[in-house]
């Protein structure tokens, strides 16, 4: 009996020391992790909507659309000199290997100003991960709200057409679906 108690005590001391060490590490890294995410998002938002000077998360807008558009994770409102000049959505859709998360910026008229694929870590390296490359993301710039958004194989012929990445159609489609969802969400918010 005494022996079992001794074993238990040793094991408990080991676990306690481990828990304290981890609690301490977590206290050091947690603010860094949070801070970095916020910083990166701000940076990306500035790139997507360069005219705006201030970006703020808009939980009240988010709560209005989250039931209808569960893919949307966050809504940001962009302001230029205090006046609302655009909106950005963080949207997660399903790609080939897992989630693809995209930040989509629209101006006040609903024109897509730009997109940034924030994460596509589970897509096939070298193929699906091309959705993060500039040439692919550029295609979404300045697509007006009334243009039909579609994914095509081969070079695009009209506004709203996006060329799919060769042998990575599903990853490309995930991004297009994400942008489409954001446009629908914009319409819902504006009541159009």
């Amino acid at each position: 009996m005494k022996r079992i108690l001794r074993l238990g005590a040793v094991l408990m001391v080991v676990c306690a020391v481990a828990a304290i060490a981890l609690a301490y590490t977590n206290r050091l890294t947690e603010p860094l992790i949070r801070g970095r995410v916020a910083e990166e998002t701000q940076q990306a938002l500035r790139e997507l909507l360069p005219d705006a000077d201030q970006f703020a998360e808009a939980p009240e807008l988010f709560s209005r659309i989250t039931a209808q558009f569960p893919e949307i994770q966050k809504v940001y409102v962009a302001r230029t000199k205090g006046k609302v000049s655009g909106v950005a959505f963080l949207v997660t859709t399903t790609g080939y290997g897992g989630p693809v998360t995209t930040l989509v910026g629209l101006d006040e008229g609903g024109t897509v100003r730009g997109i940034k694929v924030v994460s596509a870590a589970k897509e096939t390296p070298g193929l699906g991960t091309q959705v993060m490359e500039d040439w692919f993301q550029r295609q979404f710039e300045n697509i007006p709200l009334d243009a039909q958004l579609s994914l095509v194989k081969g070079p695009p012929k009209r506004a709203g057409e996006v060329q799919a990445i060769t042998s990575a159609t599903i990853s490309s489609r995930a991004v297009v679906e994400g942008v489409r969802t954001c446009r629908e969400a914009f319409r819902a918010l504006m009541g159009r």
Binding site: V14, A18, T29
Partner: peptide, 26 residues
């Protein structure tokens, strides 16, 4: 009880790597 103790020690360092990488190499 050496094996459970080893596992706790190893798991602790793994978690430290996990947190540090999350913070510095996202």
């Amino acid at each position: 009880i050496r094996i459970p103790c080893f596992i706790v020690v190893i798991a602790t360092f793994v978690t430290i790597v996990d947190l540090v990488m999350h913070a510095f190499l996202p």
